[in-house]
Design a protein around this nucleic acid. Structure first.
Lengths: 107, 107
DNA sequence: CAAGGTACTTTATCAGATATAGTACTTTTG
DNA sequence: CAAAAGTACTATATCTGATAAAGTACCTTG
């Protein structure tokens, strides 16, 4: 049974997040759920991994964080894409296409 | 310019090595050269990464190591594939195909 | 009210990678 | 012949995106 090892999935969380935020702003937990859904329930980005990635992307000004204005329920931290983030996504995506072609030659 | 980041290439060194050893026994440095060649000089597996990977594969009985019997030149450590190694390759390759399809959905 | 779910955060640890440096031998160059 | 460069392998230290475990705060359900 083939599996998604953390080594093979490593380095992709930023790109996955940036991809989703191109469509609309999302809060953290929602990002996890959407990734799980889009992978046909095959891949679950861990919460710690997600929030670490979000924190790093904020630091690098690829995304902006802001608290939702919910009056009920827990507060949700939303994230939105920046121009820097869009560029980062494009670079990361190009890197993936390129890496994939090289790996395919070698494995 | 797209590049091969270590995070994206991570987790593939074992599989690359096992692939090559299916064709014939090779010594360490030769493996590096062959990978460099087969990637059209796009990817160079670092020596420290290679030997760490080889050591790990030997420990896991995926390959066997033996010294060449050169009478001239430095001694060369050769590696040969085992049945366990062949299975490992097949599992790793299946993991790659599977991972690739999921990543393609998400990035 | 307790259990479970949602949502976010903190700390500690892991392991495949890199950086740096080393040893030993041969070949090439001046 | 010596120095430089190349080939071949090994050792130690560090990095960092990941995971494990645990935490806080609020809502919903039984």
């Amino acid at each position: 049974m083939a599996k998604l090892t953390s080594d093979l999935m490593r380095g992709h969380s930023d790109t996955m997040i940036l991809k989703l935020l191109q469509e609309q702003d999302m809060y953290g937990y929602e990002i996890i759920k959407e990734i799980y859904k889009r992978s046909n329930e095959q891949y679950e980005l861990k919460e710690v991994t997600l929030y670490a990635s979000l924190r790093r992307l904020v630091t690098e000004e690829c995304i902006l964080a802001y608290w939702g204005d919910e009056s009920k329920g827990g507060r949700r931290k939303y994230y939105s894409l920046t121009e820097t983030g869009l560029s980062r996504y494009e670079n990361n995506h190009a890197d993936w296409i390129y890496s994939k072609s090289i790996i395919d030659k070698l494995v």
